[in-house]
């Protein structure tokens, strides 16, 4: 992203104090990660740093336990469903917000962004009552809908910005060449906003994988996400399995980010 950002020499070659500060900040951000990964491979029976020896016992305990695996599976279902819902709704919302002019535009934009300022716990409690009333409490769908609401503001902002970057004359050109409105969207707009859709989708997926409050309220015995499982586990005792789970989450995030970047680089036309 930053490759085409031009800056002055002073910005490109900062002085020593700035460099030191930057490294301290980076270390501060990375420290937990750098500690948790070695701990997850520890041969000790309790949380200790540095680990006395290498062992995969905690991964065995994590991946060999059907409760943990079930939680991962629920999280994957919830995150996927939430990402798909988010992307579809946010794209459909961004099109009129960017492309047309209507009188209630500001109001609707505000409503779409509202979940950002409402505390998640309020959303969770509200949804809990609604889903309980219609008998959908404790389902994967309920959690996915909750997560969709939570990530919607960011997704709408990302997709609106992406769509803004696509010249609307391209859609006009497509129509002048014989494409219907839908064909123009399908063949021109959609491929051009694909990077935004992928970013928003990945963001929704990862947010959902991490988020605790919504599944805590809307989940149940049959829909326990990984985050809830971790929460329940640390409530009882803190042992290195948690480090293994965390390492798994970090690896998943890094993997998805790298994949998204490779995908972006594979495009020759951009």
């Amino acid at each position: 992203m930053g490759s085409d950002v031009m800056g002055s020499d002073a910005l490109l070659n900062p002085g020593l104090p700035v460099r030191v500060f930057a490294w301290i900040m980076l270390a501060f951000l990375m420290a937990p990660v750098l500690i948790i990964i070695p701990v997850s491979f520890s041969s000790a029976q309790y949380l200790s740093f540095p680990p006395p020896g290498f062992s995969l016992q905690w991964y065995e305990r994590f991946l060999g336990n059907k409760d943990w695996l079930a939680a991962i599976w629920v999280s994957i279902q919830v995150a996927t469903l939430s990402a798909v819902l988010t992307v579809i709704i946010a794209t459909l919302a961004a099109i009129p917000l960017v492309r047309s002019d209507f009188s209630r535009k500001t109001l609707i934009y505000g409503l779409l962004l509202a979940p950002m300022i409402v505390p998640v716990i309020i959303t969770a409690i509200a949804l809990y009552f609604i889903f309980a009333r219609i008998g959908m409490g404790g389902t994967v769908i309920a959690i996915a809908i909750g997560h969709t609401i939570v990530v919607m503001p960011i997704a709408v902002v990302v997709l609106s910005a992406t769509l803004q970057g696509v010249d609307s004359r391209l859609e006009n050109a497509a129509m002048s060449l014989g494409a219907s409105r839908f064909q123009a969207f399908r063949r021109v707009t959609l491929p051009l906003i694909a990077p935004g859709i992928i970013s928003a989708g990945l963001f929704a997926f990862l947010t959902s994988f991490d988020e605790l409050v919504i599944p805590l309220f809307l989940g149940g015995p049959n829909a326990q996400t990984l985050a809830v499982r971790i929460w329940n586990s640390v409530m009882l005792e803190i042992e290195p399995t948690i480090a293994a789970v965390s390492t798994f989450l970090i690896a998943l995030t890094v993997l998805i980010m790298v994949a998204a970047n490779l995908l972006k680089k594979a495009r020759r036309w951009a």
Partner: peptide, 18 residues
């Protein structure tokens, strides 16, 4: 527009970049 069968060349061409 798609039913008019007219060729249109836009300012800045509007070529499909992808």
């Amino acid at each position: 527009p798609q039913k008019r069968n007219l060729g249109v060349v836009f300012q800045n061409y509007a070529l499909f970049p992808h």
